[in-house]
Amino acid sequence: MPALRPDRRLGPPLGPGADPFRRRRSRPVRPVLSAPAQPSLLNNRGFTSGLILGLVFYAAVAGLLFVLSLFLQDGLHRTPTQASLGFAS
Rank of each mutant, 00 (worst) to 15 (best):
M1V: 11
M1L: 11
A3H: 08
A3M: 12
L4P: 10
L4A: 14
L4M: 13
R5I: 12
P6E: 03
P6D: 04
D7N: 15
R8T: 15
R8M: 15
R8F: 09
L10S: 04
G11H: 05
G11V: 00
P13E: 12
P13N: 15
L14N: 07
G15C: 01
G15Y: 00
G15E: 00
P16F: 03
G17M: 11
G17I: 08
D19G: 13
P20K: 01
F21W: 05
F21M: 09
R22E: 08
R22T: 05
R22Q: 10
R23P: 06
R24V: 09
R25V: 08
S26I: 04
S26H: 07
R27T: 06
P28K: 01
R30I: 10
P31V: 01
V32E: 15
L33T: 08
S34A: 13
A35W: 05
P36W: 02
A37R: 11
A37G: 06
Q38C: 10
L41Y: 01
L41Q: 01
L42V: 03
N43R: 07
N44M: 03
N44E: 03
R45S: 13
R45W: 06
G46K: 01
G46I: 02
S49M: 06
S49G: 06
S49T: 04
I52L: 02
I52T: 02
L53T: 09
L53A: 14
L53K: 10
G54D: 09
G54N: 10
L55H: 15
L55G: 12
L55K: 15
L55F: 10
L55I: 07
F57H: 11
F57Q: 09
A62C: 07
A62H: 04
G63T: 06
L64M: 10
L64D: 07
L65S: 13
L65V: 09
L65C: 10
L65P: 08
L65T: 06
V67K: 12
S69V: 06
L72N: 05
Q73E: 05
D74L: 09
D74P: 04
G75S: 01
L76W: 03
L76T: 02
H77M: 08
H77L: 09
T79R: 11
T79S: 15
P80E: 03
T81K: 15
T81L: 13
Q82F: 02
A83G: 02
A83M: 01
A83Q: 03
S84E: 14
S84K: 14
S84R: 14
L85E: 10
G86P: 06
G86D: 14
G86K: 10
G86Q: 12
F87Q: 00
A88Y: 05
A88N: 09
A88M: 07
S89R: 10
